Simulated assay, not measured.
Amino acid sequence: MKISIIMGSISDREIADKIVKKIREFDIDYDVKVISAHRALNLLEDYVKGEEKETGVFIGIAGKAAHLAGVIAGMTIRPVIGVPVKSSTMDGLDSLLSTVQMPSGVPVATVAINGGENAAILACQILSLSDESLQKKLRDMKTQMVEKIKNTEYKYEG
C-alpha cells in the first residue's frame, strides 16, 4: 500500500516535502499531486477513485478554506489525514478549523498546523497495522527519540 499526498496548491510544497522525506525514511511508496478541491473537483474525484485500491492512507494539505481533506474523506473509505496550512489569514486557525470540523460519518484525522512530519508518521502507523517490518521501523524511531533526549545536556552559562 502507498500513501497518496494531495496538495491544494503548489504553495503547499514545503509541507509536502517534509512528508515525503519522512515517508522515504520508512521505505513506503507514495504519490504526490496538486489538486484543488475548489477548482478541480472532478479531477480530485477521478484521482481518489483511481488510487483507492493502491492507497492505504490519503493526506490532504490545504490552507485558508481548507476543505481538501474533508472532500477526500467524503470520496473514500480509506483513512484521511488533514494537514492545515498556516496562512496570512488568522495564522492558520481558519485552516485548522476547516480541516477538523467535519460532519458525523466523514472523519478526518487532523495534525497540527504545518504538521507534515506528524502526518507522515501517523500514516505510517496506520499502514503498520498490517506490516510487522514497518512496526519495527516505527519502534526504532521511538527508541532513537528517547536516546536523543537521554543524551541532551543543559549547562547554565549565566
Rank of each mutant, 00 (worst) to 15 (best):
P103I: 14
E157Q: 10
A66H: 15
D27M: 07
D17Y: 10
G50N: 10
N42E: 15
I61G: 01
K148N: 13
E14A: 11
S95G: 13
L97T: 00
K22F: 06
A16C: 06
E147Y: 05
G116F: 12
E54A: 05
G116V: 03
S130K: 07
V32A: 01
V80E: 10
E14W: 12
A73Y: 14
S36P: 06
G115M: 08
I149L: 09
A69E: 10
G8K: 01
T76I: 06
V106G: 09
V32L: 01
A16Q: 03
I149K: 10
I15C: 10
S98A: 11
K150Y: 05
I121V: 14
A112P: 04
G82M: 03
A40K: 09
S36Q: 07
E51R: 15
L43Y: 02
I19F: 14
V106I: 15
K64G: 09
A65L: 09
E117F: 08
V34E: 05
V83R: 04
Q125Y: 12
T143L: 04
V83S: 06
E51N: 09
R78D: 01
M145P: 08
T143F: 07
T143W: 09
G116M: 03
R13S: 12
E25Q: 06
V71F: 00
T89P: 11
K53N: 11
K148D: 15
S130A: 05
M102S: 08
M90N: 14
A112L: 13
S4K: 03
R24D: 10
K53V: 05
I3H: 09
N151C: 08
I121S: 02
K137T: 00
D91N: 07
D91T: 00
I113C: 13
D12M: 12
I149W: 13
L41N: 15
E45D: 07
T76G: 11
V111G: 04
S36A: 10
Y30K: 03
S98I: 02
L138Q: 07
A40P: 02
L129G: 15
E157F: 11
D17Q: 05
V20N: 05
E54Y: 07
G56K: 00
A37R: 08
V111Q: 05
G82L: 02
N114H: 15
G158M: 11
L97C: 01
R78Y: 07
E54M: 02
L134D: 15
S11F: 14
L43P: 00
L97F: 01
E157Y: 01
K150V: 03
P79M: 12
T110W: 00
S4Q: 11
E153I: 14
I113K: 06
A112I: 00
S128P: 12
G63E: 07
K150D: 15
T89A: 14
G74Q: 09
S88I: 12
S133W: 03
D29E: 11
L68N: 05
E25V: 00
K22G: 04
M7G: 01
H67Y: 04
A66G: 13
K33G: 00
S87D: 09
Y156P: 07
I72P: 08
G56D: 03
K33H: 02
V48S: 04
E147R: 11
F26A: 00
G92Y: 04
